[in-house]
């Protein structure tokens, strides 16, 4: 283990202790800690969508569909069979991953906006299926889900998600995905089996969205098959966080997920203005900062150095 990993680990442990410490001293109410759990769930959602949209360059706007699969299947397990939470989470995530695979195989033949629309369609079909499944409450919603999600377990799973996806992106598998994003034809001509890697990224993203879903249902304790909770509007919520944090930028995803979870809670009085402001920011960001508010790739020394050298190289050859 090198020094950087150690420091990162220490910092993460400190954050955890800090939250619990502040809670013990009454500086954070349990309501605040709950919001932090929600932020962790959103981190998982945004980072996993980043793998699909940011790193692999596919455009999914149906991510909430996988959240729904994980949320309902894990809740069904804990409610009906009293399955231990982590087992239920894992099963829900695997189930979401399989659904991702089934959807990804045909859908990923499509590109760009066609793929976007197809994922939207699949997402809505998942919602309609849930709406028609009486075992999980159908249109009435699914109630009586145990309150298993804590700050501790959602924090841990958020770290795990970031860790796995970051390492994936930095591996040869991740490079294959980046290559597909940059130029699928060139990637193929270099031996990258693009269908395989697109599907891999898609199912992996769906898997983690499934974990987030499991945490989400055991956080809310009640799931309603509405657009805002498991449908198109939820997908758009995740997408907004992703875009503002920057496509292909994990640090940005984490920051955006945390900020955009906490800020609306602080501004509850202005709830009806939230979407107006979000949408204006979204448009402005696309026009003036299409790489997101925090830039295209993860922040770091290497990136800074690269861009400086890139500018130099460019200038010296002008």
């Amino acid at each position: 283990m090198n020094r950087r990993t150690m420091y990162t680990g220490l910092a993460l442990a400190l954050i955890y202790l800090l939250v619990h410490g502040l809670q013990a001293f009454g500086l954070l109410l349990s309501y605040h800690v709950q919001i932090l759990s929600l932020a962790c769930i959103n981190i998982i959602l945004v980072v996993s969508l980043n793998l699909i949209n940011g790193f692999t360059g596919q455009f999914s706007i149906g991510h909430a569909g996988f959240l729904a699969v994980g949320a309902y299947s894990s809740a069904y397990l804990t409610v009906t069979f009293h399955t231990p939470f982590f087992v239920a989470l894992l099963v829900g995530a695997i189930f979401a991953g399989i659904v991702g695979l089934i959807i990804g195989l045909p859908a990923l033949r499509l590109k760009g906006d066609y793929l976007a629309i197809a994922t939207l369609g699949f997402g809505e079909i998942i919602r309609v299926i849930i709406l028609n499944t009486q075992a999980v409450g159908g249109a009435r919603g699914f109630s009586g889900i145990p309150n298993y999600t804590t700050f501790g377990n959602s924090y841990l799973l958020a770290i795990l998600t970031v860790f796995v996806i970051r390492n994936f992106v930095n591996s040869d598998h991740g490079r294959a995905c980046l290559a597909i994003r940059e130029d699928e034809i060139a990637a193929e001509s270099l031996g990258v089996h693009s269908t395989y890697f697109k599907t891999l990224a898609f199912s992996l993203g769906a898997f983690f969205a499934g974990i987030a879903g499991g945490l989400f249902s055991h956080y809310l304790q009640y799931m309603a098959p509405t657009s805002g909770q498991i449908g198109f509007m939820k997908s758009i919520d995740i997408l907004i966080m992703l875009v503002l944090g920057g496509l292909g930028n994990i640090t940005g995803s984490v920051i955006a997920a945390v900020v955009l979870t906490i800020v609306p809670e602080l501004l509850r009085g202005f709830a009806e203005y939230r979407m107006v402001i979000y949408s204006i920011i979204l448009i402005l960001v696309m026009i003036y900062r299409p790489d997101g508010l925090l830039g295209g790739r993860s922040l770091g020394y290497a990136r800074l150095k690269n861009s400086i050298e890139g500018v130099k190289a460019h200038a010296s050859h002008k």
């Binding site: 906006d113 875009v243 203005y273 979407m275 979000y278 696309m286």
Partner: peptide, 19 residues
């Protein structure tokens, strides 16, 4: 711009009108 950026803008415009 890339098509994706325009598509996101379109989604943003849709949300803006609706909200």
């Amino acid at each position: 711009s890339p098509r994706i950026a325009v598509l996101i803008t379109a989604i943003g415009a849709s949300l803006l009108f609706q909200s």
